[in-house]
């Protein structure tokens, strides 16, 4: 595989990752959100494997397999169980209407291209053009956390942000050291468990998973 092709494939997969990010931003149904999240993980994993092959970094294969197992299988499964257990049937509600959110998302993508322009100039990696996409995915994940009211959608936003970070790491420097990545992966898994436990508690306390309810926790003046 010559470098030109690899660069093409990399860009192609980056586009898919960004597309799924926008998809999540627009999607109201929780089941579909989880599916989109799994797809994002899948593209990420494939992309990592290709980078590993081209750069000859063997530890990236491990990262790739971990991404596949964690983000495509385990985490969506946990989320799925959560949704079933908590009997979430209500559609995810948004604070800002969806078209406006999409427009903000587009602005963020342009902003990240503007930000990463100097980095792209300096870098010599074949994956350099996708740094901007990675940053955009992080920001869109955060935007999703801001605009959604439902606790489960917030955790999906959080995990999407993590995806973006991972993507940035692979595209900017061919991945972090293995130890760091193992640690991060473990953290994400544990975070998912902790969130799950919290959701049960929030659910029993407030009888709802709408984070708006938590304003009641605020101390009065």
């Amino acid at each position: 595989m010559d470098l030109q092709t690899v660069s093409q494939i990399n860009g192609f997969l980056a586009a898919f990752v960004l597309l799924t990010a926008f998809g999540m931003l627009a999607q109201k149904r929780i089941y579909s959100l989880i599916h989109l999240f799994a797809w994002q993980g899948f593209f990420l994993s494939v992309n990592t494997a290709i980078v590993a092959y081209v750069a000859g970094k063997h530890h990236l294969y491990i990262s790739s397999v971990m991404t596949l197992s964690l983000k495509v299988i385990v985490l969506p499964y946990i989320l799925h169980i959560l949704v079933v257990k908590l009997k979430i049937r209500k559609e995810a509600e948004t604070l800002v209407n969806i078209p406006a959110t999409m427009l903000i998302g587009i602005a963020l993508v342009i902003f990240s291209y503007y930000l990463t322009a100097p980095v792209t100039e300096l870098s010599s990696l074949i994956t350099r053009s996708t740094i901007a996409v990675a940053l955009a995915v992080v920001m869109i994940g955060m935007l999703m956390m801001i605009t959604r009211k439902h606790a489960v959608t917030q955790i999906i936003g959080f995990l999407a942000m993590e995806n973006g970070l991972f993507f940035a790491a692979t595209s900017a420097t061919y991945g972090m050291p293995l130890v760091v990545e193992l640690g991060v992966a473990l953290d994400v898994l544990i975070a998912a468990f902790i969130f799950g436990i919290f959701f049960f508690h929030i659910h029993t306390t407030f009888d709802s998973l709408d984070v708006e309810q938590m304003t009641r926790l605020k101390e009065g003046d």
Binding site: M142, I146, K149, Q154, V211, T215
Partner: peptide
């Protein structure tokens, strides 16, 4: 504010 979204907007 007591609203998670507000806090997230602060950090964002």
């Amino acid at each position: 504010q007591g609203r998670i979204q507000t806090y997230l907007i602060y950090s964002f």
